[in-house]
């Protein structure tokens, strides 16, 4: 299997003693990987390191065989992401925000921008200033920006934040659609167990800054009645409920 993402022993310790410790993980092409853990478990820290927003104390991350620390541009060339919150420039319109992103890639024209706006359901607001958008709409802009360049790997940190039920269902469909049609690999963090169960085909559980288990969803559901039971069991094994 072709490795898309390799996380090798990353550790990051904050001044308050929290952080992540020795996380090792490989993500293969076509995976929809769910990074599951409670708030404060270290999901965002790991994702920030994966996308170069933060430097690890030790370890490295390779995306498409390029180190994020040493070959950042090459590593991020085929990556789209939302980390923590979907940010956009409030004084620009939805279209202008995406135009700004498009300048970092070749051959992304107006057609592609309209296409992703359509995908995310905000095409009719394309000329409106983002500062007037609701949280859910801003999240959609972030998702549109993440998939704009037709990335082969999409990293989404809590992508359902701010979305209503309809938005959540559409988002799930979008992920499935891109995975099926364009073989896009997804790395999705979430604290919503049910959503991860419905969306992801492989799951890693992170707890107290450590990756406690990784398995395929179908294996998990063969052995446990639900992902929630598996989660409780894995966390319990590591000394906490």
């Amino acid at each position: 299997m072709e490795k898309v993402l390799e996380i090798k022993g990353i550790t990051k310790k904050y001044k308050n003693g929290r952080g992540i410790w020795d996380i090792n993980l490989d993500i293969n092409k076509g995976d929809i990987f769910g990074f599951l853990g409670p708030n404060g478990a270290g999901k965002t820290t790991a994702m920030k390191i994966m996308t170069g927003m933060m430097k690890p104390d030790t370890g490295d991350v390779k995306i498409f065989e390029h180190s994020v620390i040493e070959q950042f541009e090459k590593a991020m060339k085929k990556v789209g992401c939302i980390i923590e919150t979907a940010e956009s420039y409030g004084y620009l319109s939805a279209y202008e925000n995406l135009k700004l992103h498009s300048r970092f890639y070749k051959d992304i024209g107006e057609e592609r921008i309209d296409e992703v706006l359509e995908f995310t359901g905000i095409l009719k607001y394309k000329k409106e200033k983002v500062k007037n958008f609701s949280l859910g709409m801003k999240q959609r802009i972030g998702i549109a920006a993440a998939i704009l360049s037709k990335p082969e790997l999409v990293i989404l940190d809590e992508p359902l934040n701010g979305l209503d039920v309809e938005g959540m269902i559409e988002m799930r469909k979008l992920i499935k659609h891109l995975s099926d049609t364009e073989k896009t690999t997804f790395f999705i963090s979430s604290h919503l167990i049910h959503d991860v169960e419905l969306t992801c085909n492989r799951i890693g559980i992170v707890y107290n800054g450590k990756l406690v288990s990784v398995d395929y969803t179908k294996n998990i559901l063969m052995n446990y009645p639900s992902l929630e039971n598996y989660f409780v069991s894995e966390v319990d094994k590591n000394g906490n409920v």
Binding site: M53, F72, A75, M76, K77, V79, E84, T85, E87, F104
Partner: peptide
Amino acid sequence: NQNTLKILLVRPVSR
């Protein structure tokens, strides 16, 4: 402060 710097930092452009 507005956290918009990360919009650019996660694109394939070096710091």
